[in-house]
Write a protein that binds this DNA or RNA. Structure first.
Lengths: 347, 347
DNA sequence: CTGAAAGCGCTTACAG
DNA sequence: CTGAAAGCGCTTACAG
């Protein structure tokens, strides 16, 4: 009995088919496919013609299975959320470097979930990726030790590993923030609100530290009532900032720890009609920041560079580099556009 | 002689190792791993313990190689540029659907290059992906026929296939544009400039058609001097629009065929100080469009829905659906925010 | 219910 | 330079 619903699947040509058509052995086809130079020109030509005729595509998986190095020509890339501009820029930069080596990228979004992180790293492990670049969500990476010891390099980007020795490519969050806050202090602000992500996220922690550093160096006492952490969306930031603006002694300036929070802040300030009176500096640049009124002053990260460097380090490891873990720091730049240069009201 | 530079690679456990430790056969381990129900509880427990102890991770590639269905638990996703918001949103939506089925996504950017398209589809084919979602760069997809016949489904998103029968999920570019331009006409504009992508891109073509339709229905003769095509970046759009504004008889309104072009238009109009005098409607929404002054009127696409639908259709095909190719159209919505409601100057 | 043998599509290791 | 045999880590097809 034949299955009526089954579509007529034309089988793919295998190396065996190519060998038969070219009247050579399997091994000779393998040699031609892998560009081993020791093949008689005439045989090689026959093989190439058969490959052409059958439109033969070698099976990477089968090849990797038997190969000495077991390379799958695939790397994993786990980021916070591939639809946000930060993650998307990293993806693109990594893809570019990988493509030069004909390596494909398996991407995934972690959404700040340690559970997703474990699920996706496990999936990558089962796919036998040659290496992984990760902006982690969890705070214990010991579980990656086994893969690491099995020869899979991990490069941490944007956030460092915890309890694991591995390469890392980070922004100078603390210094960048310190500079931004000092900039506001220099303009004359003494009451600077802080909106940041959950303090469990290392970059958020570093940025908060930078904020504290700047205040301390100016002899300003921290007012915890104008610090809001645990924010991650445009809406949450807008609401938090709106509330602070409505309080009895509102800040005259704000620092926001991430671009979505900056957008939320812009919204709240605009809705209060205070865009020419409340100063704002945000961490991480975003499209259109310079077209808002006032244009938004930011601490810009070189996100594409972070991605490129992470990929570069990863491929060095894949190529056998066994030196000590690298700690790369990518510099940030304060871009003054207007919102950060608004002076506080005169007393 | 030992290779001094080689790092001490701890080998990964295989199914064989698990079998040995659990004192059962290979096949029994395989049954437990694949949740075949017919295994004695005690044996199964021993296997599970061994899996745990060795932290065994099955090798997807090896399993796919022997499996009847040959599934790699991997799909390909080729988009224009993963770092742009449109592509990134599609990616995220597809990832979400795939993750529910524990399928990983191999992503790639085509950058409008037919050559990249062929390279990357070939790479996906070699990785034996279970299916492909593609926003194509080329205009001849016959070369995909063989993979299609070998059982790999292709779903086209944002742009249709050429010379190939396949599923497609598109926006109603033509209607959306027609509505946008009619909206400008209703406000009173008679001289509406058009900025679009290269006419070789099908969506750009459709949008241009929509523009022509709207003009024709209002009895307005096309003035080709205020139509600029072949634009793809913010800068190019800005320059083109600045030039039109500087001409002797500039348009009183503009339609832009894509969000980067809209951003460029905003920039040029702003730089000319004409933001309250020149009307603008853009195709595709973007973050912050509502915070610009004036806020930008757009024809919004439901990009996430396009991604979700494409993934849904793909997995139906992977599950064996052999019905006629689907042509899904995702509706657009005109969002009036201000820039599109600016009236032309009185004569 | 359990297992020994064969085989997926390749590369390795070895003869000739 | 070329090829026959073995084997990568699994699942299939078949006995028991």
């Amino acid at each position: 009995m034949t299955d009526i619903k089954a579509r007529p699947v034309v089988l793919r040509a295998t190396m065996k088919d190519v060998a038969a058509l070219a009247r050579v052995s399997l091994k000779t086809v393998s040699r031609v496919i892998n560009n081993e130079s020791t093949v008689n020109a005439e045989l090689a030509a026959r093989v190439r013609q058969a490959v052409e005729q059958l439109r033969y595509q070698p099976n990477f998986g089968a090849s990797a299975l038997r190969r000495r190095d077991g390379r799958s020509s695939t790397i994993g890339l786990l980021l916070e959320d591939l639809s946000n501009p930060f993650s998307a820029t990293i993806y693109r930069a990594v893809e570019e470097v990988a493509a030069q080596r004909f390596v494909s990228v398996l991407g995934g979004s972690l959404d700040e979930s340690p559970f997703r992180e474990r699920e996706l790293t496990m999936s990558l492990s089962r796919h036998r990726v040659d290496g992984v670049i990760i902006a982690p969500a969890s705070h214990d990476h010991q579980y990656l030790r086994q893969d690491q010891e099995a020869g899979v390099p991990f490069v941490f980007v944007d956030r460092p590993p915890s309890l694991l020795r591995a390469d890392q490519v980070l922004s100078d969050s603390r210094e960048g923030t310190e500079n931004a806050v000092k900039h506001l202090l220099k303009i004359g602000h003494r009451r600077i609100g802080y909106l940041g992500d959950a303090a469990t996220i290392s970059t958020a922690q570093e940025r908060y530290r930078g904020y504290l550093d700047a205040l301390e160096q100016s002899g300003i006492t921290l007012d915890p009532t104008i610090v809001v952490q645990g924010l991650s969306t445009i809406e949450a930031a807008r609401d938090a900032l709106a509330e602070l603006l409505g309080s009895t002694n509102p800040p005259t300036a704000f620092f926001t720890g991430q671009n979505l929070l900056t957008m939320g802040a812009v919204r709240a300030i605009r809705e209060a009609g205070l865009q020419n009176h409340i100063a704002l500096v945000g961490f991480d640049d975003f499209l259109m920041a310079d077209l808002l009124e006032p244009a938004v002053t930011v601490v810009a990260q070189d996100v594409a560079l972070m991605g490129r460097e992470a990929a570069r380090v990863l491929f060095e490891r894949i190529d056998g580099d066994t030196s000590e873990p690298h700690h790369l720091v990518v510099r940030t730049t304060l871009i003054e556009r207007g919102s950060g240069e608004i002076a506080p009201p005169l007393h």
